[in-house]
């Protein structure tokens, strides 16, 4: 398996692994922006809004910590011309966004502004 330093290399001129890695990176940025906006609820809703901030930041952190693994698995996939789709990552991120949205709706409808 060809490598440069610790990073495996691939021959994909479409740069698919790199673009996918950057797409995950942009997603972490979106999560951090969402977390920053949840911060605005903290003076009104206290720890409950803090939970939303923490959930968004932790999701972003989890994505960032696993980016290297995902990038290498994509490069290996290109090298071997077959890869196992990453169900766990997509399911976890989608579940996190769904939970954030449900908690957001709950906050708007049932928690009075204090």
């Amino acid at each position: 398996m060809p490598t440069q330093g610790n990073t495996p290399t691939h021959g994909d001129a479409g740069l698919q692994p790199e673009r996918t890695d950057l797409a995950w990176g942009r997603t972490t940025l979106s999560l951090v922006v969402a977390a920053a906006i949840f911060l605005r609820w903290m003076p009104h809703h206290g720890w409950f809004a803090g939970t939303l901030v923490a959930a968004a930041v932790l999701t972003a952190l989890a994505i960032n910590l696993s980016r290297r693994r995902r990038l290498h698995s994509a490069i290996r996939g290109i090298q071997q011309n077959a890869m196992v789709p990453d169900i766990a990552s997509t399911a976890a991120v989608a579940a996190s966004v769904v939970v954030l949205a449900v908690l957001g709706i709950y906050t708007v409808l049932f928690l009075p502004l204090t």
Binding site: D12, G14, Q16, P17, R19, T20, A23, W24, R26, T27, S30, L31, V33, A34, I37, A74, G77, I78, Q80, N81, A82, M83, P85, D86, T90, V93, A94, V97, L100, A101, G104
Partner: peptide, 23 residues
Amino acid sequence: PRFTLANERTFLAWIRTSLALLA
């Protein structure tokens, strides 16, 4: 595998759309 990766990026684009709506 390039199609699998393209599918993953498209999923992430939808997720970011969802996050923008959330924010």
